[in-house]
Design a protein around this nucleic acid. Structure first.
Lengths: 210, 210
DNA sequence: ACCTGAACACCGTTCAAGT
DNA sequence: ACCTGAACACCGTTCAAGT
């Protein structure tokens, strides 16, 4: 995949596949999957839509390229950064900070996770989801949690995260900020630790019935 | 709003606004927001797309009507049914069963909650979200939880729910079923009760640090 | 009152032709 | 190697005309 070949016509550098994919991912994060449209994107990039088809076979292809970029940026790079931290407890806390405070994905997440009507999007989302759940389970295992309980806790953590940023998009006013967010994360971590420590099968004692 | 006016041409009953809205909601639940398309819907209903514009001003209008139906079915009717139960603890458990087991919304939920690029969808989602969070807070208050903690617990419950069905759509294989689901809901309820019982402000004792 | 049919704009896709 | 420009299909929207 050539990165860029140097200027060609009228001083404009020739467009690369990557430039299209990046523009597509930006549009997607800001205005949703429908905004990944060839003609408007071409206009924004200053070329005709015909030229698009030299780089990509279809619009779906462009989406797939943008999605690949998303996977790399918001999953692989985050995991790689976490793995540079020695203490798994620190890794978990850092992950929560990244996920809940820094709001990974900058808007692409919510747009993507539910746009599973598109087969390309569905495939990318499945991959990312599997990868993240596996990493979370690994993280809890590193903390000393038994495999089954670790998977369970990872699931709980991930659904909370997905729900959180979805809510943030749907109704930002309802999402905790500042000290309320601290308490929220505190409780979540505590809940997770309780769930992770629970024995797999029989009913376990609880502090108060709800 | 007239329901139906009796047959008109060729034995076909005249189409009502409601028939269009229902068809739109079905398409939306099954194939996403993009599937709410005038021409295909008209074809399916056996009329020309021109006729659509007698009932609705725009496609957005149709979406809004479908959304109103969604709000009624998946929020107001559910709440009304719950309120017929006396014991708030039973209400909460029943709500969890409906939400996590019977998968409210039959697919529309995930498609909608993240399709906030459309202003009509965004508005409907905001309304439904606010209503549901308010009801959850009320439910926890009825259980004897203090107002602040009740809101907090409701938020935790709702984000878990949203994350759960999003995951169900994204990667069904990762979602617990059978006894694993029982344990999941058990833990969730216990976590919620712990969070609800926590004092609002200062650091509270936890069973084990994570 | 409710629908048809033709028209037009917008965007995805193709392709011959340009540089 | 990379792009233009014209063409066509599909869907949203309008509107005059039908029953």
């Amino acid at each position: 995949m050539p990165e860029r070949k140097g200027p060609s016509r009228k001083g404009q550098p020739t467009l690369s596949r990557q430039a299209w994919a990046d523009a597509a991912l930006d549009a997607l994060a800001e205005r949703g999957v429908a905004a990944v449209a060839v003609e408007p994107l071409a206009a924004a990039l200053g070329v005709t839509k015909g030229s698009f088809y030299w780089h990509f076979r279809t619009r779906e292809d462009l989406l797939a390229a943008a999605l690949e970029r998303w996977h790399e940026r918001e999953t692989e790079e985050v995991i790689a950064a976490l793995q540079r931290l020695d203490d798994p407890a620190v890794r978990l806390r850092r992950l929560f900070d990244i996920a809940f405070r820094d709001a990974v994905g900058g808007g692409a997440e919510a747009a993507l996770l539910a746009a599973t009507d598109s087969p390309v999007v569905a495939a990318a989302v499945r991959q990312v989801t599997t990868r993240r759940l596996a990493y979370l389970a690994e993280l809890f295992t590193d903390l000393g949690v038994a495999p089954g309980a670790a998977e369970h806790a990872g699931l709980l953590a991930y659904t909370s995260y997905v729900g959180f940023f979805t809510l943030q998009r749907a109704e930002p006013a309802a999402v905790p900020r500042g000290p309320a967010l601290d308490r929220y994360l505190d409780d979540l971590l505590a809940m997770l630790s309780a769930a992770a420590g629970a024995r797999p099968s029989p009913a376990h004692p609880r502090q108060r019935g709800v």
